[in-house]
Design a protein around this nucleic acid. Structure first.
Lengths: 345, 345
DNA sequence: TTGAAAGCGCTAACAC
DNA sequence: GTGTTAGCGCTTTCAA
């Protein structure tokens, strides 16, 4: 029955030191119940706690109260540079409220994601940030819902009443297409994102709508969706478009990583950017201003996204209120990968 | 006294379902004690657990056993792209052992780092991965040591008997200098990292030793340490060197981010890379192959680093063995930012 | 305003 | 081989 590990200062120890009962010490240390304790006693307790370096034990607190001051986050590929600023901002906002962020990376495997939700639930996370959710019937989202876990989606929308923080993907693609059209491009193809992801779908829809709005033709086969957001997948899709679509002068990509792949494809095809073909990305992830040529892209306010998601989640955790969806405005960042089209035949 | 949150399936429920006492169920579910239980009973328990979707409650388990299956990680700037692959690999290796990674980002504030260690300790982490440690007298490291927490340093060495996983920084700088020398460079300056960090110190020492080994002169003032690893800091230090050191033909930087800053400085000074000046980095972080010109740098096996650190830590956690320090071999990656020096006066 | 007591879910020493 | 029991550290109802 002996505890297996060496003991550190606990509440009982603090109470002894202050000459009060542990429950009094507990009350004195909790801002919400402090007023129930006589001032001098409360003082002695706080002084003793400070002197001994007392920290409430998270496990015991969690067991007793059911809350862990832990928030889980699911991201597909933590190595993807766009998640770094999102997670950093979310962690900072959460920390202000005493919450820590537990990040899990299920990759693109929905079953694994659901498994992680179960694991995080067993760890009694107070809420969950989901950046992995597919558009419909996502098992991870279902796992959250069935457990009644406060959940906020990031950079993905999950339909119905699920709170989410997203960029206006349609508007972003409209900006890209309008920019290209203003340069004189008429024949623009789209390297799309994964169809099951809301970003993949919405950016594709946004692209198609924008083409129509600009009065530009979009022949069948001028949109090619990559199976995942990756440089190699972008290269494959762009290669296909390059050989399939006659006379295209621009490639609007659903994502910066795909655009990097498009660079590779253009290079292999002997096409110069932007002299022979223009390329746009989406996200404005770190370092794309340093590549050659610097990528013209749609900037998404990643830090803002993480911060808002964290705040929304904290609201749900504390007040149980149904937080709505926040739509953030993207912005066009003009760099060197777009220019006027070559004179056409 | 009622628990504030809805209850999920607990061990007692599983035991009831299987018709055994909770402690029997506990034994049946724990691989280490399973042999103490009669096969049929064990079967019934496992079946019931599976059917009900039972998961042991992490808080209760932690409270009882003193271990949390949580490992903490401290990184300075989670947005720094070099940490992503390290953390991803570490998390994966930890997950194989049922551990989750709790990442905290104290930035460059040692006091904040120590505070996070205390917080993580209160959360009963089983061990800690430290990527923030300064060379000597680091408060965070001290906080770990005083609590007897198993600790492994990453990409930093902390002296004496502290287990660490590092790249051979001296050897890496020797590779860079040898490469430049082989191209014909004789006048090479060094954009150094922060002096208090082991990487900053070791790479500087490695640079100086390599210059001596190559028989190259190193006038005073040809080494300028940046206060932190940042692009802006790199630009400032490189600008200083460019104006201070007459006739230099190459800049060997302690880090890719600093090298990016050196690009900025060269550009502002109207110098072409590599025609007018060669630049080398250190780390080979993502996308530096896409910048213009592609950066010649020293590749550090980041994933391997994270994996090894996790394994070392798990060894310490399980066996309490004193794991030694692992030194990983870096490699030169030749790209476009280095070339023969311009013919000198 | 404070103390007593119970119990969150689990494991392990002990008894049978 | 299995049940009993105690207790990890904390909060909170209840009684005084």
């Amino acid at each position: 029955m002996a505890p297996p590990l060496p003991r550190s200062v606990n509440l009982r120890r603090v109470a002894e030191e202050a000459g009060v009962h542990p429950s009094t010490a507990s009350r004195a240390l909790n801002p919400a119940t402090r007023h129930l304790v006589a001032a001098p006693a409360a003082h002695r307790v706080q002084e003793a706690a400070a002197r001994l370096g007392y920290r409430p034990d998270a496990a015991a607190m969690s067991l007793r109260t059911g809350r862990s001051r832990l928030v889980g986050a699911l991201v597909p590929g933590i190595a993807n540079p766009v998640f770094a600023p999102i997670l950093a901002a979310a962690a900072a906002a959460l920390a202000e409220d005493g919450h820590a962020l537990l990040v899990a990376d299920p990759g693109d495997d929905p079953a694994q994601a659901a498994e992680f939700v179960a694991e995080l639930a067993a760890r009694r996370v107070d809420g969950l940030l989901l950046a992995t959710v597919a558009l419909r019937d996502d098992p991870a989202l279902a796992a959250c819902l069935v457990r009644g876990l406060p959940t906020v989606l990031i950079n993905r929308s999950g339909g119905e009443g699920i709170p989410a923080v997203v960029s206006d993907d349609r508007a972003g693609m409209a900006m890209a297409v309008a920019h290209l059209a203003s340069l004189g491009h008429r024949r623009i193809a789209h390297v799309g994102g994964p169809a099951p992801l809301s970003t993949g779908l919405l950016r594709r829809e946004g692209f198609e709508a924008a083409m129509a709005a600009q009065g530009l033709e979009l022949p069948p086969g001028w949109v090619e969706a990559a199976p995942t957001y990756g440089r190699a997948e972008g290269e494959a899709a762009a290669s296909l478009l390059l050989s399939r679509c006659s006379g295209i002068t621009a490639l609007a990509c659903a994502n910066d990583l795909l655009a990097l792949g498009a660079y590779d494809a253009c290079r292999r095809a002997g096409l110069r950017i932007p002299a022979d073909i223009s390329v746009t990305g989406h996200n404005d992830m770190p370092l794309v201003d340093m590549i050659e040529p610097p990528l013209t892209t749609i900037r998404i306010p990643h830090a803002e996204m993480g911060r808002r998601a964290a705040r929304l989640l904290l609201d749900r955790i504390h007040q149980g209120t149904e937080a709505g969806t926040a739509v953030l405005a993207p912005a066009l960042v003009e760099r060197g990968s777009t220019g006027p089209p070559r004179a056409q035949a």
